[in-house]
Structure formats: structure tokens, C-alpha cells
């Protein structure tokens, strides 16, 4: 198919096409899998996004990177799947449970639960070990909570759009997003920032 050549050209004019495409595909799969938590569904979404990218190659103007373009398509494919699933009821989120234990009776942080100073956490973004912990923490969030959080932070949807897609009230959406952040920060603090930041201390 002549298209194949065109796709490869779009990814990189100077060679290494197949391996680049494979690397993008594997990133896309990880991206989709984190959000859908269902391997066949994630693989389908990636496949469809790549196929759509392939077909629409003529519309790719080459100004942005091929990767951002194919990710823009992947976002739609993921949202499609979430929309299909939103008809299945999300397990109801228990409004009070979980984080009350971090606060005293007046609602102030208990001394041992007070959020710590993470220093300059941006340097962690280069650390593969950090990302392993980050993904594990994401996967530990309840499914419905994680779904809302990732629509907000991975897919970049506005809260109003999320509510609409999932048929939730805005207020409920905010509560769920807050619970996701509380859960994720607690997990990262205990499993990364306060535990020697991964591999360093094990040496």
C-alpha cells in the first residue's frame, strides 16, 4: 500500500520508521490501558486510532508532530469507549469513607498526616522508577474515581464535559476529582517521597 510509505515519511523523514512507529504504538497502548484498565479495549482503541491516522494522512499538515496528531485521534477513541461504558453504572462512591482518618475531629490535619514538602518534584519526571510508582498509585485508585480523574488530567476535558459524558452532576464530579488527588498524593507520599524515592537508598 502506498500509504505505508507516506506514514513513515510523516513520522520521520530520515529513517528508523518502523521502530519509531512501534515505540509510539507501545506508548499509546500504555496511555490507553491506564485509562481503560482493559487490555482488549485499549488495544482496539490504539488500533482504531492508528487506522484513522493512516486513512486521514492526507489531512495531516506536517506542522505538528505525527505523535501529537495520532494522540489527538486516540483521545477520541478512548472517550468513545468511556462513553459506551458510562451506560454501565459506575460503582457508587462512598462520600465520606477513606480520608476522614487524616483529619482530627475539627477537620485539621493530624500531625502525622500533614502533607509533606516534596521539594522540587519536577526532577522526578525524568525518573523511570518514579513513573512505575506513579502508575501503581493510579491503578490503586477505585476504577470510577480513576476514570474521572484521567478524563480531566490525561485527556484534558473540562469538568462540564466529563459530567456530560458520564451523566454525573457537577458537584459529584468535583468530589470525585478531589478524592482522586487525595488518594494519589497519599500513595505517592508514602510509596515514593517518604520512602527514599525508590531505588536510591537500596544501593
Amino acid at each position: 500500500m502506498p500509504m505505508g510509505h507516506a506514514t513513515a515519511e510523516a513520522i520521520s523523514p530520515d529513517g528508523g520508521h518502523a521502530s519509531q512507529l512501534e515505540a509510539i504504538r507501545s506508548d499509546m497502548l500504555r496511555f490507553a490501558l491506564l485509562q481503560l484498565r482493559d487490555k482488549p479495549a485499549a488495544e482496539d482503541a490504539v488500533q482504531e486510532a492508528l487506522a484513522a491516522a493512516w486513512e486521514g494522512l492526507g489531512r495531516f499538515d506536517g506542522r505538528g508532530s505525527f505523535k501529537s496528531w495520532v494522540y489527538a485521534i486516540l483521545r477520541y477513541k478512548i472517550i468513545d469507549r468511556i462513553r459506551q461504558r458510562s451506560r454501565e453504572p459506575i460503582a457508587e462512591i462512598d462520600p465520606g469513607a477513606g480520608f476522614d482518618a487524616l483529619f482530627d475531629r475539627r477537620g485539621f490535619w493530624l500531625p502525622e498526616e500533614r502533607p509533606a514538602d516534596w521539594g522540587d518534584p519536577l526532577q522526578e519526571l525524568e525518573n523511570a522508577q518514579f513513573w512505575r510508582i506513579f502508575d501503581a498509585c493510579l491503578n490503586r485508585l477505585p476504577k470510577g474515581t480513576a476514570r474521572v480523574f484521567m478524563m480531566r488530567e490525561f485527556l484534558g476535558l473540562e469538568t462540564g464535559e466529563i459530567c456530560q459524558e458520564l451523566g454525573m452532576k457537577a458537584n459529584h464530579c468535583w468530589v470525585v476529582l478531589h478524592r482522586a488527588r487525595m488518594g494519589l498524593r497519599l500513595c505517592l507520599e508514602s510509596d515514593w517521597f517518604e520512602s527514599g524515592r525508590g531505588g536510591y537508598v537500596e544501593l
Binding site: 506508548d27 499509546m28 500504555r30 496511555f31 491506564l34 508532530s65 505523535k67 501529537s68 495520532v70 494522540y71 502533607p115 516534596w118 518534584p121 519536577l122 522526578e124 519526571l125 523511570a128 513513573w131 506513579f134 484521567m150 488530567e153 490525561f154 488527588r181 494519589l184 498524593r185 505517592l188 507520599e189
Partner: peptide, 16 residues
């Protein structure tokens, strides 16, 4: 920390 979570999600290695 909450700001950092947003940045981290934006630059997740699986993203674009």
C-alpha cells in the same frame, strides 16, 4: 502537590 499531579499527568511518559 496537587499542582504537581497535574504537571505529572501532562508529562506522563505514555503521553504525547
Amino acid at each position: 502537590q496537587a499542582d504537581f499531579l497535574r504537571t505529572a499527568c501532562r508529562y506522563h511518559p505514555s503521553g504525547a
